[in-house]
């Protein structure tokens, strides 16, 4: 009996060691590529490091965070980021769901539509921004030319303070929507047919089937899609950098662009790191929500 316990413990020890031996290279790699930059950014955010005086010491505690929080531009950037993220995610989801529902029906040349839909997603955001900047150029761009052809007034898409953020959001929706379509289309394709057949027998109309069957069953996939996109949108940097440089005024200065300005134009790597850290905390919070939703949807499916 005593020997059996010993053997069991030895086997468990071997298993434990083998497990760690397999996991260690990956964990070390993660620690190098993720842990080190993260720890460095954390130290940077409480340091006195600037590009002019490149030394970490003395550490200044939360002074950089306090200086950022005391800056009205930070709150403006945060509020813009929240509005921008909300509008883009809702836009991407609503339009993406509509397209996914259309493609879910038996249509001809479905693969062609999917292929076309992936084109914006495959393009780099910088290229997308440069292309749209040309299209929306107020004097020589094609957008205003078309507006004029249809008897509509020319617009200053990126130069009007009240319009610039929403123009940027529309471009973002155009690019990111294809990802939402693909995920939702996959979710729709995986839904069981039985509830629909039962509903048809009970005389339920199309919209009733959508509201009472499709939407509830699609909820886990939809929640994940929304959270992923929300995280993406919070990190938006490329579009304001290329399209507007945060202007006109501060109309498109989202949080990541604010952090960039602090670090590279203000030469204050420490303050830039503090701003980036706040952004990271928000994204982390959203990631936690994402995994919580994922787990809940999985356990919900398990109970079914």
């Amino acid at each position: 009996m005593h020997n059996a316990i010993k053997k069991g413990l030895a086997a468990r020890g071997r298993e434990w060691r083998t497990g760690w031996a397999f996991a260690l290279p990956g964990l070390l790699l993660l620690a190098i590529v993720m842990g080190f930059p993260l720890a460095y950014a954390c130290i940077l955010s409480i340091s006195s490091m600037t590009l002019i005086k490149p030394q970490l010491l003395p550490l200044v505690g939360f002074k950089n965070f306090a200086s950022m929080i005391g800056d009205s531009l930070f709150w403006n950037a945060l509020w813009l980021t929240v509005r921008y993220s909300a509008v883009t995610v809702v836009g991407e989801f609503v339009i993406g769901l509509g397209i996914a529902l259309m493609l879910n029906r038996t249509v001809r040349m479905k693969p062609v539509y999917f292929a076309v839909l992936t084109i914006p997603m495959a393009m780099s955001p910088i290229s997308v921004a440069l292309i749209w900047r040309m299209l929306l150029q107020p004097n020589l761009g094609i957008a205003n030319h078309l507006m004029e052809t249809f008897g509509l007034p020319r617009l200053d898409w990126l130069g009007t303070p009240g319009m610039a953020l929403w123009t940027m959001a529309a471009i973002d929706i155009w690019q990111q929507m294809s990802f939402v379509v693909l995920i939702l289309a996959a979710g729709l394709a995986a839904l069981p047919r039985d509830p629909y057949e039962a509903a048809e027998v009970d005389g339920a109309r199309g919209w009733q089937q959508f509201v009472y069957i499709t939407l509830p069953m699609l909820r886990p996939v939809a929640a994940i899609t929304i959270i992923i996109q929300l995280i993406n949108e919070f990190r938006t940097y490329d579009l304001p950098y290329v399209l507007t440089k945060g202007g006109p005024g501060n109309a498109t200065e989202v949080l990541s662009f604010f952090a960039y300005r602090r670090a590279f134009l203000g030469l204050s790597l420490n303050e830039g790191a503090a701003a980036a850290f706040v952004l990271l905390l928000i994204v982390l919070l959203l990631t936690v929500i994402f995994f919580a939703v994922l787990e809940r949807s999985q356990s919900g499916e398990g109970r079914k």
């Binding site: 945060g246 006109p248 005024g249 501060n250």
Partner: peptide, 23 residues
């Protein structure tokens, strides 16, 4: 001076606000 590039950005923001009628 050392922070000329930052000042250019700061001034540019204020000019942009004025040009857009926001200040």
């Amino acid at each position: 001076f050392t922070y000329s590039a930052q000042y250019e950005d700061l001034l540019g923001t204020q000019l942009s606000l004025a040009a857009g009628g926001q200040a």
